[in-house]
Simulated assay, not measured.
Amino acid sequence: MQRRQLMQWGAAVLAAPAVAAHAQAFPSKPIRLLVAFPAGGPTDITMRVLAEQAGRVLGQPVVVENKPGAGGTLPAQMLQSAAPDGYTVAQIPLGVFRLPYTTKINWDPVKDIRYVINVTGYAFGVVVPADSPLKTWSHFVAWAKANPGKLSYGSTGTLTSPHLTMELAAQQLGMELLHVPYKGSADLMQAILSGQLMAAADSTGFAPQVEAGKLRVLNTWGAERLAKFPDAPTLRELGLDVVQNSPFGLGAPRGTPDAVVQRLHAAFKEAMDHESYRSALARYDMLPIYMGPEQYARFAQETFAREKALVEKLGLGRGS
């Protein structure tokens, strides 16, 4: 018995350096970063800059793969079948925490994702074509009330933050709107510029079109007005107790070793501090929003509970 214990102890001692060496060797090949929205939008553009800088820190490329659709939840779903080795990480938009309340899934967004780091959040708002008769949010609300179900607005997907926030505003103001979902900001901007929609609720990927005089901002959704659009009131200023900035970050598959999570976290945290990333965020009025693994996991748990209440309040859950 004593001899067996000694052998087991010896094996454990020999294995420990091997485990440490494996952690130190990570990564030894490129890492996939699954992004929840299409190429060309603010999420894609900012995440590519972040990935490039993180790859330099890690010594291996971080390769962005766009996986749009399903309200931004496809990357999180893909983590469920990915190896827990750190070579697949995914963007986790807020919509992931609503998924079980709206769709039947066999995994848990809190327990079945290793939360690595939160990196930023969105600046949102509502825009209309520059030649729209809806000159202000007051005009928008009045027209919608006079024409129930006819004021069309687009978002970046069903049950995304733009969709739910608009529906919350509509509920509070007694409006009935016509929602049209798109896969991402690029598609949504094409639709409103071509006259297919009366309005769009989106992150500030609409900024270039506003600056070009093609679109007009009716409101923004942060706690304060955006410096880029100082004339656009916040929802709070318009009488709605709503602030939405939809933080998002990166997750890895459940079971990813702690040492690997910490290595990824350290690399992406360093990348967040790079001037190129902060400049990319500034183009869309986005700000760095940092949370480490433990804080991000707590945020996931709290958001999961809060989003359940919102989905139920709006009557958008399964069976509603």
Rank of each mutant, 00 (worst) to 15 (best):
R3A: 15
Q8E: 14
W9Y: 10
G10V: 03
A11M: 07
A16Q: 14
V19N: 02
A23F: 05
P42K: 12
I45Y: 07
T46Q: 06
T46R: 02
A51P: 08
Q53S: 10
L58T: 01
G59I: 00
Q60Y: 02
V63R: 12
P68Q: 09
G69N: 05
G71W: 07
A76H: 04
P84T: 02
A90E: 10
P93E: 03
P100G: 05
P100H: 05
P100T: 09
N106P: 01
P109D: 01
K111W: 06
D112Y: 10
G121F: 05
Y122Q: 11
V127D: 08
S132Q: 13
L134E: 13
H139V: 00
A146T: 10
P148A: 05
T156Y: 03
T158A: 14
L159D: 14
P162I: 08
M166W: 06
M166I: 09
Q171E: 11
M175T: 03
G184M: 04
A186W: 04
L188N: 10
M189I: 11
M189K: 09
M189F: 12
Q190F: 01
L193N: 14
M198T: 06
S203H: 11
S203R: 07
G205F: 08
K214R: 15
V217Q: 11
L218E: 06
T220S: 06
A223C: 01
A227M: 05
P230K: 07
L235G: 12
R236L: 05
L240I: 08
D241R: 15
V243S: 09
P253R: 01
D258M: 06
A259G: 13
A259Q: 11
L264Y: 05
L264I: 07
H265P: 00
A266L: 00
A267K: 05
A271Q: 03
R278K: 15
I289Y: 09
Y290R: 02
P293S: 03
E294A: 13
E294W: 01
Q295W: 01
F299Q: 08
E302P: 07
A305L: 15
K308F: 02
G315Y: 10
G315K: 11
R318M: 09
